[in-house]
Design a protein around this nucleic acid. Structure first.
Lengths: 191, 191
DNA sequence: CTCGAAACCTAAAACCATTAATCGTTTGCC
DNA sequence: GGCAAACGATTAATGGTTTTAGGTTTCGAG
């Protein structure tokens, strides 16, 4: 019987693809094993348990996500960079719902440092925001606000929460514009 | 053998409480049955299946949520109402994580009409926003933006995504203020 | 070729969702 | 008050999932 050639990396990648097509919560050890044509227990040679598998998917997804975002904002600055960042964010989340969901599982700080993807995303985010001349703590406040908006928007959109006939794409574009304007006129803390 | 006195309502309520304490995804038929001291199968007299149970929790939670929000904004207007809305939103989500999560499970529009909670929340939201004099489609765009921000913020906070030492409460307060300012200066569509 | 590590397997225990068949308990009604 | 139907709950059984333990096969380096 030929071997499937599994490795932790290939298992995580397959799990990520599966998550994008059937949803992260439906990615089971069994489903993944079926995918590879191996017995369920075989996967335990490569991942510790289902939680470990999900964390691996999260790290992989964060790295992919960071790639897209850094590519999108490269060579751009100011509002231009912000719009590119926002659209890259939403495009990734809608194109890779399973991977995107994985980037939002709860991970302890000690565990999170094993991945560079998260730090790269944060770095790219602060880089975009630095152009707006915000100083701490305003910078962190603004980053949190916009990050929340992006995350909330794509999450709600993904579950079909926007039922008004108004086009979601148009709403998004206007929202991003409004946020850019908000950043340009950020009410600083000592005012 | 004495009866446990189960009803669909009591089952859903217990499920909601359980969800708040152990997380919605860990609310299983088995765990709930254990809670009541009955056999797993007994619950099937009251709920169709696990999905039905979650939908019931979602409806119950939406109703509770709507109560809190309408109470918070009652008698307030303008920025005052918006701040009250925002804080009621966050307080509920942090105090009732399981119920809050239930309000964001995917529910088909046909099914959603069986609950009035969702509509009441939307009504309260639009009421708060009307004070800002926005006309469609700006109104819907603004509602979507702020709803996304609130949802994103509490979701990220709940999974521990804000790791900067900056106090989350302070960030939130500043963010809500910034959003209020944004609403007052909303860049209208034909400008 | 061989031998050791890596890859994969079978078996089994434990938990969860669901259905079917059954049986005691209420309840409404004469 | 008594009885039949509806109800509330039970046991039993099926099938899927996670995980551990231990055994066997394959592959590549020496």
């Amino acid at each position: 019987m030929p071997r499937a050639g599994l490795t932790p990396e290939r298992v995580a990648e397959a799990a990520a693809d599966l998550a994008d097509s059937i949803g992260l919560e439906n990615v089971t050890i069994s489903a993944l094993a079926r995918n590879f044509g191996v017995a369920d227990a075989s996967l335990y040679s490569h991942v510790k348990n289902i939680r470990d598998l999900r964390v691996r998917v999260a790290f992989l997804a964060a790295s992919d996500f960071a790639d897209r975002i850094t590519a999108a904002v490269a060579g751009r600055a100011g509002r231009d960079a912000l719009v590119a960042f926002a659209n890259a964010y939403r495009d990734f989340a809608l194109a890779h719902p399973g991977r995107y969901a994985a980037t939002h599982i709860e991970i302890a700080p000690e565990e999170a440092v094993r991945s560079t993807g998260g730090a790269r995303i944060i770095g790219a985010t602060y880089a975009v925001f630095h152009a707006y001349g915000l100083k701490e703590p305003d910078l962190t406040d603004a980053v949190r606000l916009l990050r929340s908006t992006f995350h909330g928007y794509v999450s709600l959109e993904a579950i079909g929460a926007f039922r008004d006939p108004r086009e979601v794409q148009a709403s998004w574009d206007r929202g991003v514009e409004a946020l850019a304007t908000l950043l340009e006129n950020w009410p600083s803390s000592n005012s």
